[in-house]
Each structure stands twice: as structure tokens, then as C-alpha cells.
Design a protein around this nucleic acid. Sequence first.
DNA 1: ATATGGTTGGAAATCGTTTTCCTGATTATA
DNA 2: TATAATCAGGAAAACGATTTCCAACCATAT
Lengths: 329, 329
Amino acid sequence: MVSIKDVAKHAGVAISTVSKVLNNYPNVSEDTKKKVNEAVKELNFLPNSVAAALSSKQAGRVALLINLNTRTQAIDEIDMRYISGAINKAAELGLDVNTFFFSMFEDMTEDEIVRYLCSQRIHGIIICGLSQNDTVLQNILRSQVFKAVVVDAPIVNESTSCVSIDQEKAQYDVAKKTVMDNKCKNILYIAGKQNGYVTEERLKGIRRLAQELDMDLLIREGEFSEKKAREITFQEARKRDIVVCASDLMAIGAMRALMEMDIFRPVCGFDGITLMGYAGKQMNTVRQDFKRIASEAAKELKRLLEGGDGQQIVLDYELVRMKYTDVLA
Amino acid sequence: MVSIKDVAKHAGVAISTVSKVLNNYPNVSEDTKKKVNEAVKELNFLPNSVAAALSSKQAGRVALLINLNTRTQAIDEIDMRYISGAINKAAELGLDVNTFFFSMFEDMTEDEIVRYLCSQRIHGIIICGLSQNDTVLQNILRSQVFKAVVVDAPIVNESTSCVSIDQEKAQYDVAKKTVMDNKCKNILYIAGKQNGYVTEERLKGIRRLAQELDMDLLIREGEFSEKKAREITFQEARKRDIVVCASDLMAIGAMRALMEMDIFRPVCGFDGITLMGYAGKQMNTVRQDFKRIASEAAKELKRLLEGGDGQQIVLDYELVRMKYTDVLA
DNA sequence: ATATGGTTGGAAATCGTTTTCCTGATTATA
DNA sequence: TATAATCAGGAAAACGATTTCCAACCATAT
């Protein structure tokens, strides 16, 4: 393997000069720059990133922590968007990404996790799917050992940023649109899982809507489960004008139940996953651009690593109506 | 950051001794081992993996190359299983994994890709989704610069292994079962994409079946597209007893078409993705354990990196019948 | 002609390990 | 008892970059 030393010899300059050229330092004449660059070309030299990392100590190594949804593979799509968004952007920014899953740390203590990540020379992390009761990771973030960007959890401090859409407003918007279009008088809301940040925000949204329109609002906890939503729908939907769900998966469960009950109720979901196209009937939902979210997270992490302060980033969403022909495009 | 030097000083031994203890070398007395381990504990020392990698040169760094399906996010599930399977296993084996997507290399030449991976100090790669006409990557494999394991492509040489199920037999099996159960006389086969390895193998399988049972076989190319399969079904299914598809996604397209035509034909798919549960009707399919496939690939790569020779690995599959209630479990 | 200041490029230290020798000391063998 | 063989542990040279510091050089101002 050809090293910087070989390049230096071949170009007839010192090692340090080569390094300077490679890293665009000032104080190098155009002349020597050219000599070095030629030598690099001729010898087919590529810098050893490991050595560079060791030497410069700012490795730019980043961990992508994904809380793989274990509930159903039907929504792998979301995790996949997170992963591809983060990895692509990070590569573009010259960050070296290692992907991990929460499950790997399941039975580790805070200390062990920190030690493990440190031994991997991780300096920054992107966290997708952190739940409010995951105290272990929360403590790690609080300790500020790492620069971090959290998706969909409201954690901001000196070295931690978060990125998300406005969950409250999105829930309000999609429900309002559906209610208006269908002239509903009361609402069945199938919420997410207790204590989750997005669950709470979306609840606020639907409550605001109900209050504003002076509608009766029945809230049941669906735990983001298709099955649970299905059951709740069987129990409650007859007496209700609309079923608003805190996730697409639950919306699908609700819709199938309604079809089996052979009654019509408008249903709206949240997320905008492809599976919505297969639900049998059209539904309104909030399309989140998960790829963009992760990509922004990567960008933000880069900023933090370069010394920026933590902040909250809020991204757009889109109200859409999903049907089978969409997925055929 | 506390280094091996500090540990050595604290334990009253030489740096090399600490290193030996850490790496379980022989020729260290229990006594000094204990001293060193205590020092490690007390100082909360964790080895710098970057320095270790630089020094030992056998970084064990591995690239996971995923050819993200761009067709539809409905089958992200497959890529996700590949990723989680490979990453989890690799972590367990102590391999350091970097995930890349084919799209990143789209407009790079062979040389550039090799150079890029080398600069990342990648020694081994796992490739998922390599197509037969991707000559760039094929050449890289042929050049044997890297140890590699390829999923679903029959490439074996000194430093390359492949892992896959027996595609031919699986297609034969699932089609035979469906044909038998429904007493069909002729077959509409919706094939994959021309020149693909799995496409060819599955074709062999269905041909063998047709020949063996002396059935008429109409083959149309579905290109793994739901839409295409849908169109083909509209055109051809009326005159046929069964629709055998080379992928679940196509099977879903076919099934929806049949439902719209309001005729019944048995349909069978291939892959075993969750989406099958949402198709509306039950279908037979071949369940591939993608996670296991990737996990075996990681294990095999480790073996190659340790000097083993390339080989072909064939894994099991399972015939299943998928329905909506399955996905609710 | 000398002092001053700004470029340019090289020498050498450094990052934190691994690994190769090498030296004593201890044990086994003849 | 002499000699060989084994073993524990240390010194120092890698690994391949980055970075600091310094010397040499040139131009400009005095």
C-alpha cells in the first residue's frame, strides 16, 4: 500500500508538505502543489483514513442508533428511510457512520454503552425511535458525552439537538380536514402509546380540534398496534362519526374492521407509509418525509460536531390522501 | 482520555505487557494479569480502536453494500432484514460494519469505487441485490481485491462466497403445491427481470414442473413490478388456471387484478413479505429468512477474512400460506 | 547594506496501539 | 553441575497520517 511517505519521495518534498497539500493548507506554492498532486496521481495514492483519524483525533465517526420497530415488518419502511437518509447525507458530509440497533444495547448499563461507543471512537450519534421511558439513553444524552441529534423526542441541550415535524399541528390539520370533508359531529381517536412524546403531542392536537369545533371526543389507547386499533374500532366505531388514528398502521386496522363491520366511517392516519395504499379504501394521512428528517439530523450532527449549539429543528409535513393506484406508480 | 500508557504506569509494568494482557497473549503471569486488569478497571481505560486498527493493520472493517430496491417501499422489509441481520451478526463477530448503498457508487468507475473503499480501510464486503448486469461490481469481485460474500448471485472464487436458498427448487415446490391443491391444468407464470440470476433459476423451476406434470406453461415477463403483473393478469389470466409469480409483490398485483376482474384463480408468490397479508386473499409463497441469509453472509465473510476459501452456501426456505390474521399476531 | 516581515518547505514530535526482538530468570535435561 | 530450554516482561520500532516549530529565503523598507 502506497503511503504519504512514498508520495513525498516521488514528488521530492517532505511528508509534511504532502500533508499540507492534501489538506489544503495555505503557505504552499502552486508549484509544489502541482508536483505533489502529480505524484499522488501517478502512485495512485489514497490516504489512510485510520491513520488520519488517529493523528487528527477528530475522527468524525458517528453512530446511527435505530430503535427497530419490533411490532411489525410492515412499517420497516420508516426505519429504512431513516437509515438511507442518514447514511447518504453523512457520506456526503464526510462523516463515517456506523449503524447500531437498540436491541444490541438492551442488556447493557449506561456505562457499558458509553464505554462501547467510546471504544469505537464514536463522537456523535443520531437517535431514531427513542421512547420517553428509555432512561438509559436519555441519561447518556444528558451526560453530554456525545454530540447527539434525536429524532422525534424533545431533547435539547448544549450538545443535543432534535428534529421532528410539528406533531401537534399535523394531527390537528389532518383530523380537521377529514372532519370538515365529512361533516362529522364526534370523534373516536385511537391514540399511540402512553408517555410517548409523539403520542402526547398528537393528543394535544386532536384535543385542540375537538375543543375548537366543540365536538365530543372519545380517546382510546391503541398502542400503535394494528390489532388493538381493530378491536377498538369494533367496539366503538358504530357510535362515532370518524376514526382518527395516531398512526397509519392503526388506521389500516381500523379500516379493515370497518369493512368487516360493513359500515362506512372516514378514517385518517399518520405517517404516510406505502402500506396505506393497500388498505382497501382511501384515507387521509400526514406524510412525513422520514428520509429528509434523517438527512437533516445528519446535517445537524455535523454542525454540532463542529462546535454549534443544540437547537430544535422543525420540518414540514404534507397532508395526502392515499390509494392503491398511488403505489402502482 | 486515558491511554495504555497510563495503565502501564499505574500497574507498574511496560506498555507491551498491558497490550499482551488486553489481547490474551500467553507468557504473562497470572499475577501481572491481575495487576493490569485492576489498573484498567480503576482508570476506566478503554482501548482506542483506531490506534489498534492502525497498528495491527487487520482492521476487520467490513462494508455492507445494499442495492436499495427503488421500485417500491412496500418491500423495504427485505432490505431491512438484510441490514439488521448482517449488522447484528457482524457486531457479534467483532466486525466493524459500514453500510453503503449502491446509489452512492452509481456514477463511479470501478477504480474509484475500489479506491474509495480502500481509503475507508474496507477489507471485506457483503453484497445484497447484485444484478447480473452490474459489471462494475462484478469486476471488482473478480479482481479479488476484497473478500466478499454475495447474496443471491452465483459468484464463487478464491475470495468470494455466495449465499442463497435453492431458488429453482423453491419455485418448483411452491408452484407444485399450489397446482396440486387446485388441480390446475395450465400455468401463467409471471417471471422476474431478464438476465437476473434468481429470475433464471426460478424459471428453471417452473419449467421443470410444467414438463414433469405435462402442463402448458405461458411465461410473461413481469420485471418484479406489481403494475406489470397486474397488467399481465388482466390480459392472460382468464385463459389460465393459476398465476404463479416470481415475487410476492407481483403476486399481490395479480391478485388485485383478479379481484377486480371478479374471477378466482389461485396465485402464488415468492419471498414471504408481510405485505402478502394485506393482499385480500390468501396465497402460497416461499418464505425466505432474509435476516438469517444476511447473518450467514456475515459469518461467512468472517471466515473468508480469516483465510478460508470461497464456497457456495445454500439455506432453507419454507412454504407458507399468508393471510391477514398472520400480520395481526 | 541592513533590518524587517512574510512565505515556503522541512524536521521531528505526536497520536495509541501492536509486535518484534531481546534480556534475565527460572526450570528442565543430561 | 553444566547446559539447554522455557518463560516473563521490557525496550523500541513500526503503523501513516497531522501538526508544530523552525530555518531558509525573498522582498520591501530604512
